Amino acid sequence: MTEYKLVVVGAGGVGKSALTIQLIQNHFVDEYDPTIEDSYRKQVVIDGETCLLDILDTAGQEEYSAMRDQYMRTGEGFLCVFAINNTKSFEDIHHYREQIKRVKDSEDVPMVLVGNKCDLPSRTVDTKQAQDLARSYGIPFIETSAKTRQGVDDAFYTLVREIRKHKEKMSKDGKKKKKKSKTKCVIM
Rank of each mutant, 00 (worst) to 15 (best):
V125G: 09
D126G: 10
D126L: 06
D126T: 09
D126W: 06
D126F: 10
D126I: 10
T127W: 10
T127L: 12
T127P: 08
T127F: 13
T127Q: 11
T127C: 12
T127R: 09
T127V: 13
K128V: 12
K128D: 10
K128Y: 10
K128F: 10
K128T: 13
K128C: 12
K128N: 12
K128Q: 13
Q129C: 03
Q129M: 11
Q129R: 11
A130Q: 04
A130R: 02
A130L: 15
A130F: 15
A130V: 13
A130Y: 15
Q131T: 06
Q131D: 11
Q131M: 08
Q131S: 11
Q131A: 14
D132E: 15
D132Y: 05
D132G: 07
D132F: 04
D132P: 01
D132I: 05
D132A: 09
L133F: 14
L133T: 05
L133N: 03
L133Y: 07
L133C: 09
L133M: 12
L133D: 05
A134T: 02
A134I: 02
A134V: 03
A134Y: 04
R135F: 07
R135T: 09
R135G: 08
R135W: 05
R135D: 10
R135E: 12
S136A: 06
S136P: 00
S136E: 08
S136I: 09
S136M: 07
S136V: 04
S136W: 04
Y137V: 11
Y137I: 11
Y137Q: 10
Y137W: 14
Y137L: 14
G138R: 01
I139Y: 03
I139T: 05
I139R: 00
I139M: 14
I139L: 02
F141S: 00
F141H: 03
I142H: 02
I142Y: 04
T144D: 01
T144P: 00
T144I: 06
T144F: 00
T144A: 02
S145F: 05
S145P: 00
S145Y: 06
S145E: 02
S145T: 05
S145I: 02
S145N: 13
A146Y: 12
A146L: 10
A146M: 11
R149I: 10
R149Q: 01
R149Y: 07
R149N: 10
Q150V: 14
G151Y: 00
G151P: 01
G151W: 11
G151Q: 07
G151M: 09
G151F: 09
V152N: 10
D153L: 14
D153R: 13
D153C: 14
D153T: 13
D153N: 11
D153E: 14
D153Y: 12
D153F: 12
D153Q: 13
D153W: 11
D153P: 09
D154T: 11
D154A: 10
D154R: 09
D154E: 13
D154N: 11
A155M: 12
A155Y: 00
A155C: 05
A155P: 10
A155H: 00
A155G: 06
A155I: 12
A155W: 02
F156S: 03
F156I: 13
F156L: 13
F156Y: 04
F156T: 03
F156C: 07
Y157H: 13
Y157D: 15
Y157E: 14
T158V: 04
T158Q: 13
T158H: 07
T158D: 14
T158W: 04
T158S: 05
T158I: 00
L159W: 00
L159H: 00
L159R: 00
L159A: 08
L159G: 02
V160K: 10
V160E: 04
V160A: 08
V160D: 02
V160R: 05
R161S: 00
E162I: 02
E162P: 00
E162H: 08
E162T: 03
E162L: 05
E162G: 04
E162W: 02
E162R: 04
I163G: 00
R164W: 13
R164V: 15
R164N: 12
R164C: 13
R164Q: 09
R164D: 11
R164F: 09
R164E: 12
K165T: 03
K165W: 00
K165E: 12
K165A: 08
K165H: 03
K165Y: 01
H166V: 10
H166R: 11
H166C: 07
H166S: 10
H166Q: 05
H166Y: 14
H166F: 12
H166I: 10
H166N: 14
H166W: 11
K167C: 04
K167E: 11
K167I: 04
K167G: 08
K167N: 12
K167S: 08
K167F: 04
E168R: 05
E168G: 02
E168L: 09
E168S: 04
E168M: 01
K169H: 06
K169T: 06
K169W: 14
K169P: 01
M170Q: 08
M170A: 02
M170R: 01
K172R: 15
K172D: 11
K172E: 15
K172L: 12
K172M: 07
K172A: 06
K172F: 10
D173T: 08
D173A: 03
D173F: 01
G174E: 08
G174S: 13
K175L: 12
K175V: 03
K175A: 13
K175F: 02
K175R: 07
K176G: 12
K176R: 11
K176A: 08
K176W: 09
K177H: 02
K177R: 09
K177C: 11
K177S: 07
K177A: 07
K178W: 08
K178D: 14
K178S: 14
K178T: 12
K178N: 13
K178G: 14
K180W: 05
K180L: 15
S181Q: 05
S181L: 03
K182V: 00
T183S: 15
T183H: 13
T183M: 01
T183A: 14
K184R: 02
K184S: 13
K184G: 14
K184C: 01
C185D: 15
C185P: 15
C185H: 15
V186D: 15
V186N: 15
V186F: 02
I187H: 15
I187D: 15
I187C: 14
I187L: 09
M188C: 12
M188Q: 15
M188S: 15
M188H: 11
M188T: 14
M188W: 05
M188G: 15
